[in-house]
Every structure is written in structure tokens, then in C-alpha cells.
Design a protein around this nucleic acid. Sequence first.
DNA 1: TTTCCATCTTTACACCGTAAAGATTAAGAT
DNA 2: ATCTTAATCTTTACGGTGTAAAGATGGAAA
Lengths: 240, 240
Amino acid sequence: MARKAEPARTAAKRPGRAAAARAARARRGQRNAAEEAPYHHGALRDALLQAAERVLERDGLAGLTLRAVAREAGVSHAAPTHHFRDLSGLVSELAAIGFRQFNAAMAAAGAPDAPHPARGMARAKAYVAYAQAHPGMYGLMFRTERLDYSRPSLDEAAEAAFAGLASAVAASRHEQIEQEHLTLEQAAAIARAWSLVHGFTMLMLDGRLKDILHRLPTGTEVGTLLDAMLKIAMPSPSAS
Amino acid sequence: MARKAEPARTAAKRPGRAAAARAARARRGQRNAAEEAPYHHGALRDALLQAAERVLERDGLAGLTLRAVAREAGVSHAAPTHHFRDLSGLVSELAAIGFRQFNAAMAAAGAPDAPHPARGMARAKAYVAYAQAHPGMYGLMFRTERLDYSRPSLDEAAEAAFAGLASAVAASRHEQIEQEHLTLEQAAAIARAWSLVHGFTMLMLDGRLKDILHRLPTGTEVGTLLDAMLKIAMPSPSAS
DNA sequence: TTTCCATCTTTACACCGTAAAGATTAAGAT
DNA sequence: ATCTTAATCTTTACGGTGTAAAGATGGAAA
């Protein structure tokens, strides 16, 4: 784990070092994020979150470190601490953003005027498509290890995602949803839909589906496999 | 990430330090693993793997570091490097062991004389049961990030796991399996079974199933939910 | 017995998270 | 208007990590 060197801004003497460093950074054009010069103040919190998302999708989960994010945003390595308590704080806020993006994508996919039995398919495909478009984010959201669900923003966003899923499943069963209490049958239907689509997504992101794709005619895409799987997995138009 | 201190064996002077450290360690009874004193030589490779499994199940994936494993085995922090090239090497070999354990468990679950339609259920339950009994191992096996599948031992063990799954699915469809080429329908059936059980397992290990269990009568176990899910998910006795 | 070399230990370095203390400046008080 | 305060950001420091390189050790081959 010895790769990049911290930028050499260890020049200036004693006082006014911050200003000197800032000036030096500006001279070199290192303000790589945040348009309007976050030279002392600024909207650092948001800038850090945007930088974090960039780092995540560029370098993967392993590259998402506090110092890397600070570097990307052009601030000192300890700056993030004041906005998010620690790494799990930053990561959790980022995951909350991911859940909100995800919720928006799912809501958009649920809207159209499809003839109803195709609704489930469309939703499932949108689910996988989101993960494919934001693999880092999806991985982050479902790798609980580094997440702190006691943060209200994360808890709420994740809860909203679950509620959306639950009501989608209920709708496909021609039922109303009662948020607090579920029957075992409803719970099983939700678990089934979620496990199926989450499992497929994880296997895809972890590259395990290649084992299957290699045994199909060369050039078969993941989407084809997903379609075929959903065809046998979704409640057929004849069922209740 | 500042927690435990490296044991203080920085006492001895210049030459014979290794011997001195070894003696000191023995004096304190720090040979916590490996019965017959791996004092210089020994079966270190295996001892390290056993130590790694212990660390993994005790401290989780985050605690599984090269130095922690070396500590657990009572050797210097650089010793593992000579047996596994780097961290991903050790982790990959450990994952290979996990896959072999898993394959054995699945083989045992597939053997019994069940009346055939219940076979799939039994296998699925064994799958989840393995993950529940070895959560750290399962997490390791399916978090590709840190794994190196170019290692033959890992590749073979994982391939064997896939082959077992594929043939189980084929059997449930009253088909013979042709290892190299699959029809799209076969591939979809395999993907469906794998996604379902893997997804359920991941959601369970990551604690996301609590969202569902909290909405069921208090005290409902995860096993109950799994049963109910499989009942609607497995090909019913009437289907082809 | 002597040499050789695989095995294990030390030392060193860049990276990481995080705590604590110093510098800077926006904003409110006088 | 200046002064004070507090929020924001930077430095410094420390112990943790992986891993490269060099030194010590001792079994096995010559």
C-alpha cells in the first residue's frame, strides 16, 4: 500500500503557511474541484462529497480514503474530519446520496404506462442498470461494514428504498401495503424479489457471472441473461 | 485505525535477537497457535492459514491483516510474505479453503434420500446455513476486491463450487449437464437459483433483512423467512 | 564438517485514520 | 469602526497497515 506521495506543500516557513499553501495551490491550478475557489471557506461539505463520488468511481472502494478525498478536493487531509466525524461518517453520507439517486432512478422506471405485467421486469432492469452505471456506489450502499446506519440521512434514504421495493412488490400482487406489519407471504415475496435482483447484481459486480456467460454463445451480454432469468422468475401473467 | 500495539519485543541488543525474541515469546507462553513450537522452522504455511481463519471469524474482514495473522501465529510481521506473496495471496488461499469447506457442506446436503422435490430446498438451506456458520469466510469468498483468481487453488475451488451448483440445478430440471456449453434456459435457471440464494445470504449477512423481520411477528427467525421464500420460489412439484 | 539456501526477523518507508493544537477569517458584539 | 468569538481549515504527531530489502538462523546437501 505504498503508492502516491502527498503533494509537496511543505515549503513555507512558520506563519502564514496556510495562505502560502493556498497561494501555491492556486498558482499551479490545483483547484481541481469546486469552481469558485474554496480558498478558506466555501461549500466544502458538498465539494468533499462530490470529490468522494469521483474517487469512488475512479479508484474503487479500496481507493476511497479520507486523505484521497481531501487531496481530490484540494484541501488538507484533516479537513474532512470537521464536516464528517470520521471515515465512516463521510462514507455513510455518500451512501445516503447513492440511495437517493437510486430511489430517483427506480421512481422514474416505475412511472411509465406499461401494461402492468411488464412493470416488474422494467423495475428489475432499472435496478440492475443503476448498479451497472454506478458500481462503486452500489457496492458502497450494500457493504454495511463501513456504514453507520445511526446517521438519520442514511437511515431515511435506505428506508425509502426499502419502502419503494415493498410497495412495488405489493402492487404486483394486487395488494395494498401496510408499512408496519406484513404477512409472512408478503414478506416472502419481498425477500424473493429483493434477493433475486440484489444477488444477480452482486454476482455481476463481483465478476462471478462470467462463469455462466463463458458457457453461452460468445458475445452474450449480461442483459440477455437477466431477461431470460426474469422471464422464468417473475409471476407469469396467468398467476394471481 | 489506531488500536492495538505491537507486542514489545524490541528489547534485545544486536546479535541473536531472533533467538532472544523467540525465547522471550516462549517464556511468556505466547505460542498461542501451532502446538509443536514453530520456533524456527515448522509448518508455518498451514499455521498461518489456520490463524487467519481464526482472526477472520473473530475480528471480521476489517481485522484480517497480514500483521494480525502473523501476531496470531506468533511470528514476525513479515513472515507471511515468504509463504503468500502479499495480503491478496493469503486472503486468496484462505478463500480457496472456504470454497472447499463449502463444497463439502453442499455435497453432504445433496446426498440424502429426500423425495426429490425437497432436494432443492435442502440444498438452499444448506447454502445459507454455511454462510451463517462461517459469515467471515462467506464474505471473503464473494468479495472479489481482495481476491486473486489467477491463483490455481482458488480458481479450481471456486470452479468446483459453480459446477456443483450447475449440476444441482440441471438435476432439478431432469436434465444432464454439459459443462462447456449451456442453453440460455439452463443458464437462466442457474442464474436464478444462484442469485436468489446468494442475494438472500448477502442481505442477511449485511443485516438488511432486519428491515423485513421487524415487520413480522416479533421473534420470527430468518430461517422462517427463508422457508417461506423458497416455497414460492422453487419449482412446484407440478411443474416440469 | 562445511557450504548453501530456504526460512524467519529487523529495519525502513509511504500510506492510512484520527487526535490535538495552531492559524485564518467570517460574523456578531460593542 | 474595531474587537471578540467561533467556525473553518492546516500542521503536527502517533500508531496502525502493506511491503521491500537486508540481516540472522539453522536444516540439508555436499
